[in-house]
Structures are given as structure tokens and as C-alpha cells.
């Protein structure tokens, strides 16, 4: 715990809200080329870009973190995201809603039925004729199949479930489809990524593409990948969704963020997921 507290103090945001920056020690940066091995399985944290991807190589946020932070992700017993994963598993097996069914009643063993699901999200939902995030699919099932109330985007229930479902894809390569009707959303997300927002007049790409690998105050700028979400952040003292992270980055540049679950953030999620094509799913990742 003491270790976590120490790293927590280091997180410093650009023009962030409510800064209490009492800085104590310098973070020890991990050596390049260190491998992420969890439970004897090696994950892909660096990969050659697919056609059209400007990042070369494509790198997981894990490779930019300090040794201490990296270490926490290699051990599920130390990974502070796991208590909520356990909660997600419990919910998976709990009857709910007017049908009195649990997720397991219909989907069975998550390690089989949910394998690969996170890796392909967000994806096109033909019936609903729109792009669906993992959260959207979960709430669709709750409302239309289970007869239960939808969960709030950032609730412990939703985070626990997205973490539990995400874990079933851990180690599998991110592989989103941008074909067919998803293409339009991809283009919209791409446009957003290069749009300057806020009083600071900055685009995502200026930090996460042009300046990746440099220090912005005490923070090592990564490529802003989303292969580890929901991610445990010391700053949040808990798991947070992809859209919460997007919101945080927009807040920091003094922009009005889009709403979680909005079409805008869903389009951005598709584009950012595509920039990490081939990286292993790391859910639940650990970041500062």
C-alpha cells in the first residue's frame, strides 16, 4: 500500500484540477524492451503498425510506465484492479431482473463465451444499426434479455463487469473492424483525434503522437492506447472506463468533454482502438 501511495503522489496533470503536487521521489523509468509477462504468459506490448497507422512501433502504455507501476500489472495478486474483477465475476453469476436469470444462465462460462469480445470492441451492431461499445452490449443484454435496469457507465457494477469480460481476452490482439458502416465512425474519430480542443488549443495527436516518449512534467507521455481498459489508476484509486480517460484529457486542456457513452466518444474509441491494433488486451491494466 505504501508503494502505491508514493506513486500516486507523482501523478501530475497538465493544468489539472485540484493539484496537490507534493512531489517526493523521481520515478524510476523502466528499461526499453522489458517484457510484460503475466502468469507465465508473455503479452505483446510492442508491434509493427498495420497499414495507415502513423505509430511505428505501436506501443502499449505499459512500456512507458515506471518499474514500480509495471510490476503491479505482472501479478494478479498485487494488481489493485482485481478486487473489482472478482465483483464482476460475482455479478456474472447472480440472478437479476424480471427473468430471474444471471448472465451465466444464458452465456455459460465467460472464459469461453466472452473470449475475444473485448478485443473487437467497439463493433457494429447490425440490429441496432449503430456502433456499440462493450458497455452498450452489457446494458442491451440487461435491458432486453435479462429484464434488468441498465448500469450507469462509471458504476462499480459496470466497471467490474467490463473488467471481468475484458480479462477473458487478456493476451489476445486488439482487432477492431472498421469496415462497412463502421468506417464513417472511424473517420469521425480520426477527425476528432487531430482536432485542437480547449483553451490550450491542443489535439490528442500533439501529445500522444508527436510528443510520445517525452516527459510532460512528471508524466511520461505514451501513445494514449486503450488496450488495458478498464484501467486501474492510482489517481482514481480505482478502475475507470475509456471514456473517463478521454474526458480527463479533455478537462486538462480546458475543453468541454463529450459525455461518456456519447456517439462522439464511441467514434473516438473506435479510432483509438484501431491505433492499437495488434497490442495484447491487458485488462485490467495498471497506470499512474
Amino acid at each position: 500500500m505504501a508503494k502505491i501511495m508514493k506513486i500516486n503522489v507523482l501523478s501530475a496533470a497538465l493544468f489539472g484540477a485540484g493539484m496537490t503536487a507534493v512531489v517526493m521521489t523521481a520515478p524510476a523509468f523502466a528499461e526499453e524492451g522489458v517484457k510484460l509477462v503475466i502468469d507465465g504468459e508473455e503479452l505483446t506490448t510492442e508491434v509493427a503498425p498495420q497499414e495507415g497507422n502513423p505509430l511505428d512501433p505501436v506501443r502499449s502504455g505499459w512500456t512507458f510506465r515506471s518499474e514500480e507501476t509495471q510490476a503491479l500489472e505482472t501479478d494478479d495478486f498485487e494488481n489493485p484492479g482485481f478486487p473489482l474483477v472478482d465483483y464482476g465475476e460475482e455479478l456474472w453469476n447472480t440472478a437479476d431482473g424480471s427473468t430471474g436469470k444471471s448472465c451465466a444462465s444464458c452465456h455459460g462460462d465467460a472464459s469461453e463465451s466472452m473470449k475475444g469480445v473485448r478485443a473487437s470492441m467497439p463493433k457494429w451492431n447490425k440490429e441496432k444499426n449503430t456502433l456499440f461499445t462493450l458497455e452498450d452490449y452489457i446494458n442491451l443484454s440487461r435491458e432486453e434479455h435479462q429484464g434488468a435496469k441498465p448500469w450507469k457507465w462509471e458504476s462499480q457494477e459496470m466497471l467490474g463487469m467490463t473488467a471481468y469480460i475484458g480479462l477473458q481476452s487478456r493476451g489476445m490482439p486488439v482487432n477492431v473492424s472498421i469496415d462497412g458502416p463502421a468506417k464513417e465512425w472511424f473517420e469521425k474519430g480520426k477527425k476528432m483525434y487531430y482536432t485542437r480542443y480547449g483553451q490550450l488549443d491542443l489535439a490528442c495527436a500533439q501529445c500522444h503522437e508527436d510528443n510520445q516518449g517525452t516527459m510532460i512534467r512528471a508524466d511520461h507521455l505514451s501513445q494514449g492506447q486503450i488496450n488495458g481498459f478498464p484501467t486501474y489508476r492510482f489517481k482514481w484509486s480505482g478502475l475507470g472506463s475509456i471514456h473517463r480517460r478521454f474526458k480527463g484529457c479533455m478537462d486538462n486542456i480546458r475543453a468541454e468533454p463529450f459525455k461518456r457513452g456519447s456517439d462522439e466518444f464511441t467514434a473516438l474509441e473506435l479510432y483509438v482502438a484501431w491505433r492499437g491494433q495488434g497490442l495484447s488486451v491487458e485488462t485490467p491494466a495498471v497506470r499512474n
Binding site: T195, R196, Y197, G198, Q199, L200, D201, L202, A203, Q206, C207, D210, N211, M250, D251, I253, R254, A255, E256
Partner: peptide, 22 residues
């Protein structure tokens, strides 16, 4: 440039409400 302008109205889209016009 990534460097913000510190005394300009030439800013980005969707400036947060509390900073509009400032």
C-alpha cells in the same frame, strides 16, 4: 506548435464553459 498562447482568443473547439472568453 504545442505551446499554448497565453493571451489570445485564438483557442480550440469546445472551450470549457468556465474558460470561455478568458
Amino acid at each position: 506548435t504545442i505551446m499554448p498562447g497565453f493571451y489570445t482568443m485564438h483557442v480550440g473547439d469546445r472551450v470549457a464553459e468556465k474558460f470561455v472568453g478568458k
